[in-house]
Amino acid sequence: MKINQKLFLQFGICIIFFGLIGILINNLTINLIRTGLGFNFSWLFKPASFALAEHPLPYTSSDSYAWALFIGWLNSLKVIVSSLILATFLGTLIGFARTGTNSLLGLISAGYITIIRQTPLLLQLMFWYFVGFLGLKDNMFIQIKNILNISNQGIEFSGLTFSSEFLALLFGLSIFTSAYIAEVIRGGILSVSRGQWEAFRSLGISERKGLTLIILPQALPAIIPGLTSQYLNLAKNSTLAIAVGYSDIYAINDTIINQTGRAIECFIILLISFLLLNLLITNTMEIINRLILKSREYS
C-alpha cells in the first residue's frame, strides 16, 4: 500500500515535471524559429572581430570566438588567483587584529568589517575604479626612479604593467572578500579551546609564537571549509568585472551575445566555464586540506 502510494506520487511528479519542461522547450523552439537563430555552435570558429584590451596570450580581432572566450577565461583566472592571495593575506591580518589583545586594533577591524560587509560590492568596485584610479592625474602621479609608476593608466612596476581596470577589480574584490575571510579566521581561532591559550601562556611562549605555532594549526581544519566557500564566492563575484570594463569571461560572453544574439549557447558556455573554475578551486583546496591533515599525522 505504502509503496504503491510512493510510486504513484513519483509518477505524478514525473508527468508534471516533464510536461513543464516540454512546454518550456516548445515555447523556446517556437521563439527561436521566429527569430531565425536556431541552436548550434558553429559560430564559435568564426572571427570574433572585437578587440580586447587585455590578453595574456596573443590575440587579434581576426581570431575566433572560441579563442576570445578562452582569453576571457584566462583573464578571469588571473584576477581570481591574484585577488584570492591578496584577500587571504589581508583577511588573516584583520582576523588576527580582531581576536588580538589590543582592543583599539580590535575596534578598528570590527569597524572595517561592518563597513565593508554592509555596502554592496558593486558600489565598492565603482568607487575603486572611478575614484581610486580614474581620479588620479593623467600624467604620472608617483614616480620612483622609473621602477614604480602610478597613474590613471594603472601601475607599472619594473616592466610589469597592470591596467587600472585590473587593479580596481583586484582591490575591490580583495578588500570585500578579506572582510569575510577575517570573520572565518576569527571563528576558527575562537573554536580552539581556551585551555590551549592558557597552556602556552603558562609555558612562557610569546603571544605571537603561540598564535602561529599552537593556535593556528589547530584552527585550520575549522577555517579551510569556510575559506573554500569564500573563494568560490570570490570567483563568482569576479564577474562584476563588467562594471569596470575588465574583459573577463562574463564580459566577453556579454559582447558575443550583443554581436550574435546567441543567448542560450553563451549561457551553456558560461555554465561550463564556471564549473571548471569551481572544480579548480575546490580541488586545490581539497589538496591543501589533505596536506594539512597529513602534516599533522607525522608531527
Partner: peptide, 25 residues
C-alpha cells in the same frame, strides 16, 4: 548545485534575455 555554481549577474542577465524566450507567444 547548478544555481549555486553560477554568478548572480549571469542569472540576472540571462533572466532578462531568456525568460521572454521560454514564454508562449
Amino acid at each position: 548545485d547548478v544555481m549555486r555554481a553560477i554568478p548572480l549577474i549571469a542569472v540576472l542577465f540571462f533572466g532578462q534575455l531568456l525568460i521572454p524566450l521560454f514564454l508562449p507567444l
